[in-house]
Design a protein around this nucleic acid. Structure first.
Lengths: 199, 199, 199, 199
DNA sequence: TATGAATGAGGCTTCATTCAT
DNA sequence: CATGAATGAAGCCTCATTCAT
């Protein structure tokens, strides 16, 4: 019995994974059924099983692909801006303007990583790499003398990422809740203040 | 058609709800089965159905009871400290030192409120009341002249709560992640700096 | 274990049985639950069980009481009219003008008598007694010389009762169906013709 | 939400529907369980669910198929006899000689059509089409001059069908009851008399 | 007698999964 | 590779029922 068959399926595989992500955003981890993905992708259920082996593996792989893509996008974005502070602003803005679907998938991801071993393991790596561009920007700014934070770069980065995660959580709530975009100014001001240096 | 039967059952009801919360923390919303709660509480499955009507209603009610209790505790705690700044510190510390189970339930709660209509509606009220003690402390400090924030009280409060929520998210992740307690100092320092005033 | 406890319950028993009949007309044999009768009668479920022992016994007793009442009414009506032909007309008219609820219960009764042993046994007696007034009228008319049927009284009576039963069946159908009242004239004319004699 | 999935399943579907009818005749609408049909047909319960969606839909479809078949047989039989009167006799005889199982299903059908919306709607159509061959024979006989009834063709037909339905009801009762076959002569004589004309 | 609490039995239903084509 | 047919596992849920008061 193949533990996880990852390489079945041809070109449609990527498209199917997108469909899984869509369903995942809508219905959540446990409620993403083969039927839903079959409907969303136009691919027969048995074919999905050929691709992914089991339902869980399918959803998990979709989460992994999704988060990998997010990380890659962040890295690309990071590489495009030389100035540390402006780079941080760009990275923060990307997070603040995530689509509703993206936010929902992120919440699913955090919540599933708390329970599932596989996702949890993958999540640790993703977290590290997601954190990296932020951390690098802070460090670079310090090195350059742009920032003179009272706390070390790791701490500052963690605090920033926590706030961004919390804003994501609130953004998906129903009813009145602080919008990430609405808190942009104060968030950046505070960040700048924590980083110290010329502002 | 029984919409939602909330008041069936006798003295064991409260104890059962605690058991539900325990299972919920362990297994999550969708995986909290009647069997689990029956085992955890020593009450027959049919009794659970008699109490709550359906599995979902059972879990939802447990979430509601849990969050109500959290809010009530926060309010009590808030009433016990007169000084606005020290009150904020106490409130923040409470959040930072939540038990693992509490954090897991909170994550479940945020995630379920994003999907379920009933939980979502309840969640809106809870959010407002949970926010209230923080907001009141900020406002009171401003009124007293202790705080002179550059941003209005709502904004500052939302930012603080976002960070706390994000820290909760990270605290339940597997693998290396920033610990809420570890970020206490920088968080408080930053909060103090945003609030301005004598520090 | 008491096979069937028939004599529990006080004055409310009769009222409860009426409620059972009402529910029976609405929901049918298998779907007449304790809950329904409890709601319809304002009596607790456990009380119903005290009265009747089991659900089935409750419904069966209600059917028996109902059919007994029907037979008794028929007999009373029969006794009130001396002339055989006019008596037949009265009896036929009673059947043709049954209420919708009565018709539904009758259909339930016929259908249940086809399946359930107890109801079946009771039904045989009811059928005989229900038939009696019709049969007696026919026989009396023959004796008097009012009727000169080509077929014996039993046969004529059975044919008449079959037609009345069939009309009842159609009367409870949804959509277009012959109404018993609408067929009164032809039915009586035909009956008269079968009976022969002065008309 | 799958409203009613009618066309799932392969070649065994028709055979399964026959099994459902058999169980239905034995146990009745509400007591026709998946288990029974599974046993009677040799098909797994989940397969039944795959075919029909739900228990009720399964039984309803079986009823529909059964009644359609009855109607079709009647129509075929009607087409095979040119003479109106002989055609009526053939049609009546068919009804009078129905098998016990057929009669039981018919009673179930009439009774269910009284309660269930879907069956009720279907039943209306069936009733019309079942009536059609009888009605046509009467009309044709009138046109030809074979019949000279004092009542219009619809009325006469309805009366005849009522009697046949009533006989079916009585035929399935336990204990002494008029047998349809035993009433054949008087029924036909009466019918002939109502139709008038050369006899 | 009348009732509410608690429970067991039995059926339906959803889903993932296996298998043959 | 892709699919549809058939199936097994596992949970929910409705009910009648038992028991203590």
């Amino acid at each position: 019995m193949p533990t996880r068959r990852r390489r079945a399926g041809g070109t449609k595989r990527a498209a199917v994974l997108d469909a899984v992500v869509t369903v995942l955003a809508e219905r959540g981890f446990e409620n993403t059924r083969f039927t839903d993905v079959s409907l969303a992708s136009g691919v027969a259920i048995s074919t999905l099983q050929n691709y992914f082996g089991s339902r869980e593996d399918m959803v998990i792989e979709a989460m992994e692909v999704f988060t990998e893509r997010e990380v890659a996008a962040l890295e690309a974005m990071s590489a495009a801006e030389a100035d540390p502070w402006r780079r941080l602003v760009v990275l923060v803005d990307r997070s603040l303007h995530n689509s509703a679907a993206t936010r929902r998938v992120l919440v699913e991801f955090w919540r599933s990583a708390m329970r599932d071993d596989d996702i949890g393991a993958h999540s640790a790596g993703v977290r590290t790499r997601y954190r990296e561009p932020f951390l690098a920007a802070v460090r670079e700014g310090v090195q350059r003398g742009d920032f003179t934070p009272a706390y070390d770069a790791d701490t500052v980065t963690d605090l920033l990422l926590s706030t961004l995660a919390g804003l994501t959580i609130f953004a998906v709530q129903r009813g009145p809740a602080p919008s990430p975009e609405g808190l942009r100014d104060v968030l950046l001001a505070e960040l700048r203040s924590v980083l110290g240096g010329k502002g």
